[in-house]
Design a protein around this nucleic acid. Structure first.
Lengths: 214, 214
DNA sequence: GAGGCCGCGTACCGTACGGTACGGTACTGG
DNA sequence: CCAGTACCGTACCGTACGGTACGCGGCCTC
């Protein structure tokens, strides 16, 4: 290729600080205005030109994708290191996951982003859905399953397939909350209620899969 | 009012046969084409004029609302009558609910309609979300809870709040299935797998809430 | 301090789509 | 046989919005 190739600058890796500001503007707009997000509105809100948006993100979908990725990159905090499980720490780890997860899905941002991704999944070319899935359901699965397996090797849990066990955990924690929020049910959970719900879910999960150390 | 009032014919009660055909066309289009449903496409598919669509349904939202209602009216089959529960029939009733419910939410039509309703809920004036909620989550809740309560009075189940118990049941049955489908995950469940999943959920629910007859 | 780049603001274009108007045809009641 | 009505087909209108073009000001480099 010759030297004049204009070099594709669309965001594929980490966005710059300015770009992050734009993506935050998108999130804010999404949360405030529902999902009729226009490129004009984004440009105005972020004080940048539409041309810049298209240069950085390619097209509307690119902007949405970058936004979802950006939001996902913020949620992935959280320690790892699984070793040395006793019953109390197992319960605590599960409780921690449950609370964190409920906090996320009950948040306005998560609801709106999931709405966008779901709408997107309905109109073909739906990578947005896949991205949200990978960073939501699948990501938390990937982090919980090692804990479950550690619980099993410690003789605290009994199950055959960690995926199945995790899906039960997921169901016990999430129940009808996500679908209700997505469909617009008010249902505002405060921190106390989330903690109660999470504890109940963990208790139920342990009742189903726990076993006294043999 | 004078005699020349043009009389609002928009569909509020049961749609006529011809109107049902139109609504079926909408459903077919929705399932086939994803959700970029245009009034033009509906008119073409249903062999009717756009003017008629607007006369019957008011506007696009009205058409969508009527479609959701129409679909909901088909799902509500199912016997009632709760009396005389023993352990086997309780299990059978719950299993029946679980299978039916999974069948519904795994169907293309349900997925598409939920997508529409969710997108709608994101743009204010979201009665669609409320309708889907009322005919989905809330309707099944209303039908399951009497069974649970009958189970309790028969001494087969132990719980304080039937709503809470039902939500646990809901979570155990649905798990991550609905959100994954909404986000475009392939995940095609055949009848056998649905039956297996439903049975597992019922077993787990009974393990949590069941008690031997005292 | 002159050229070059980046990016803001704004004006502009094309099109898809919601909604309306209108002519034509079939059926019904008087 | 003549209104009146219902409804189909199609042409049309207005607008919102995705995407592009262009001018101008600030900043960096030589």
């Amino acid at each position: 290729m010759t030297a004049t190739a204009p070099r594709d600058e669309t965001v594929h890796e980490a966005p710059s600080a300015r770009q992050q500001a734009v993506l935050d503007a998108v999130l804010a707009l999404l949360v405030e205005e529902g999902d009729q997000l226009t490129m004009d509105a984004v440009a105005r809100r972020a004080s940048c030109s539409k041309e810049t948006l298209y240069k950085w993100f390619g097209d509307r979908d690119g902007l949405l994708t970058a936004t979802v990725r950006w939001q996902a990159s913020r949620v992935h905090a959280g320690r790892e290191a699984v070793g040395a499980l006793d019953a109390a720490t197992l319960r605590e780890r599960l409780l921690d996951f449950a609370v964190t997860w409920l906090d996320v899905i009950a948040g306005r941002t998560s609801v709106v982003l999931n709405r966008i991704a779901i709408a997107h999944a309905g109109s073909r070319k739906g990578n947005l859905g896949a991205i949200v899935l990978a960073n939501g359901r699948l990501a938390i699965g990937g982090r919980v399953k090692p804990v479950l397996e550690a619980g099993r090797t410690a003789g605290l849990l009994a199950f055959e397939d960690s995926e199945t066990a995790f899906r039960t955990f997921f169901g016990l924690v999430g129940r009808d909350i996500q679908i209700r929020l997505l469909l617009g049910d008010a249902l505002d959970l405060d921190a106390a209620e989330i903690r109660r719900d999470a504890a109940r879910a963990v208790d139920q999960f342990l009742a189903l899969y726990g076993q006294a150390r043999p």
